[in-house]
Structure formats: C-alpha cells, structure tokens
C-alpha cells in the first residue's frame, strides 16, 4: 500500500510561531536542525546550541557565506535568509584556505560559514580562470585525502580550532566507469 506524502509536510518553518534553523558547526559532520520561536535572538540561539552540544562559550554564530559573525542582539527571524535559515557555529573567526591546481597554489581567507561551492567558484573561476562550464566539472578535494565535501558543506565543519586552516586540491570530477562487460 502506497501512501501519499505532502511535500510540504517536512518544512516545519511554515508554522508561524517557529522558525527552523539548519546549522553546521566545528566538530559536526552533518547538517543539524533546531526549531526556535521567531522572537529568539542570536544570543539565545547560541546558548541553546551550546547546551545541546556542550560547546564552549567562545563559540560564534555566522550566517551562511557571510564572513563576519552575527550580531547577537538580532532576532533569528530578522536574518533575512530566504529559502532556509542556515547558520554555522565555530570558534575560528577566520580560516586560512589554500587551493592548488596544476602546480599553482592560491591563498584565501574566509569565515567558517563559507560554502565549498563559494570557495570553488572563487578559486576555479576568479583564481585559475576556468570557464563556468569547466569549473562545474571540477571539485575541491581535501589535500592528502579522497574527501570531496558537498557544495553546501561549510568550511568550518572541516576545520578544527585553533588550527583554523585547511588545504584543497582542485581536481576534475570522476566519471562513473566500470568494467566494460558491466555496461551491457
């Protein structure tokens, strides 16, 4: 028996009294979610998250792809983020990033809420002058590993404190290929 699902049923932020906050953080390897009242301040949200995860007091909150930390007096509902409220929690204010491609390494500095997609765009297009199309066929891989973070991954979730630095290689995306007999 197949039961129909309302596609909006999972979007809890439609409830007027609450707002759904998606967040990534230092030391977390997944996207977490919390619901808070609309009148919640950034400071209160930070306290809620610190209690939930047993984080130290020096944790700072950032909006996705905004390098400066959030004003703690602002209400979460006033952050003005359209599709989904996406935040990041980290102790590093800035993270040193290097991206290597074809033997050349470029340095960057980002806030911890920078997405992998934003960093790749800067490096591939602005830094290494790839076309939009060519850039789309490349991916950032953490140097010395096979880890290729998703485009929506926040930089800070890959970096610890007090290191506050990471290195990537810009490499072509793999095409799925197998034994020829398996393709028939």
């Amino acid at each position: 028996m197949t039961r129909e699902i309302n596609p909006l049923a999972l979007q809890r932020n439609l409830k007027l009294e609450n707002i759904t906050v998606f967040y990534q953080a230092e030391g977390l390897n997944s996207v977490e979610v919390v619901e808070v009242e609309r009148e919640t301040t950034v400071a209160t949200l930070r306290d809620v998250l610190c209690r939930k995860h047993d984080w130290p007091e020096e944790i700072l909150l950032f909006a996705e792809d905004v390098d400066d930390e959030l004003d703690t007096t602002v209400l979460v509902c006033e952050l003005g983020i359209s599709e989904a409220t996406k935040l990041h929690a980290h102790r590093c204010r800035k993270i040193d990033v290097s991206v290597s491609y074809n033997g050349v390494t470029l340095p960057y500095v980002y806030g911890p809420s920078a997405t992998i997609a934003r960093i790749k765009h800067h490096a591939a297009i602005d830094g290494f002058h790839l076309s939009e199309e060519a850039a789309a066929e490349h991916v950032l891989q953490i140097k010395g590993t096979t880890i290729q973070p998703q485009p929506g991954t926040h930089l800070g979730s890959l970096v610890g404190h007090p290191e506050c630095r990471i290195a990537f290689d810009l490499i072509p995306k793999h095409r799925v290929q197998g034994a020829s007999e398996s393709l028939t």
Binding site: T2, E4, I5, P7, L10, T20, V31, E83, A84, G152
Partner: peptide, 14 residues
C-alpha cells in the same frame, strides 16, 4: 530536510 527546504528534492510517497 534542508534539501526539501531548498527544493532540491521532495518525498512523494512511501
């Protein structure tokens, strides 16, 4: 849930 919120995917039936 983030993918649903960003309209990347939607659960249609189980």
């Amino acid at each position: 849930r983030l993918g649903v919120a960003e309209q990347k995917w939607r659960l249609e039936a189980i």
